[in-house]
Measured scan of single mutants.
Amino acid sequence: ENVVSAPMPGKVLRVLVRVGDRVRVGQGLLVLEAMKMENEIPSPRDGVVKRILVKEGEIVDTGQPKIELG
């Protein structure tokens, strides 16, 4: 899985990584606000952040790609 998608609709509060960052499985990639709760979205695997496809403040839909890992 190279693309991390939104598990639920919500607002991107914070992006916790930058392009080029090495990430580990379970590491937080971003914080999504859904139903007035903050949810940290974890990396599904070890890898390197290739692209960030969302911006802080953006509203995302379920299944929308957010971060691409290499």
Rank of each mutant, 00 (worst) to 15 (best):
E1W: 14
E1L: 14
N2E: 11
V3I: 14
V3L: 13
V4A: 04
V4H: 04
A6R: 03
A6M: 12
M8Y: 15
M8T: 09
P9T: 09
P9K: 13
G10F: 05
G10E: 02
K11F: 07
V12D: 00
V12W: 01
L13Y: 03
R14C: 09
R14K: 11
V15L: 13
L16E: 00
L16R: 04
L16N: 03
L16D: 00
V17A: 02
V17D: 00
G20W: 06
D21S: 08
D21G: 04
D21C: 10
V23E: 01
V23Q: 01
V23F: 03
V25L: 13
V25I: 12
G26K: 05
G26D: 04
G26F: 06
G26E: 03
Q27R: 04
G28F: 10
G28C: 15
G28K: 10
L29T: 03
L30N: 00
L30S: 01
V31D: 00
L32S: 00
E33D: 07
E33W: 15
A34S: 13
A34W: 15
A34E: 04
A34C: 14
M35S: 11
M35E: 12
K36L: 12
K36I: 06
K36S: 14
M37S: 10
E38I: 12
E38P: 09
N39C: 15
E40I: 15
E40D: 06
E40K: 08
I41S: 02
P42Q: 13
P42N: 10
S43L: 03
R45T: 10
R45S: 10
R45V: 14
R45K: 11
D46V: 07
G47N: 01
V48Y: 14
V49H: 00
V49E: 01
K50M: 13
K50R: 12
K50Q: 10
R51L: 08
I52M: 03
I52Q: 01
I52A: 02
L53Q: 02
L53V: 04
V54M: 02
K55G: 08
K55F: 11
G57R: 03
G57E: 05
E58F: 05
I59N: 11
I59K: 09
I59H: 12
I59Q: 11
V60L: 06
V60Q: 03
V60P: 02
T62S: 13
G63Y: 08
G63I: 04
G63W: 09
P65V: 11
K66V: 15
K66Y: 15
K66R: 04
I67H: 02
I67M: 09
I67S: 03
I67E: 02
E68Y: 13
E68I: 15
L69V: 08
L69A: 03
G70I: 14
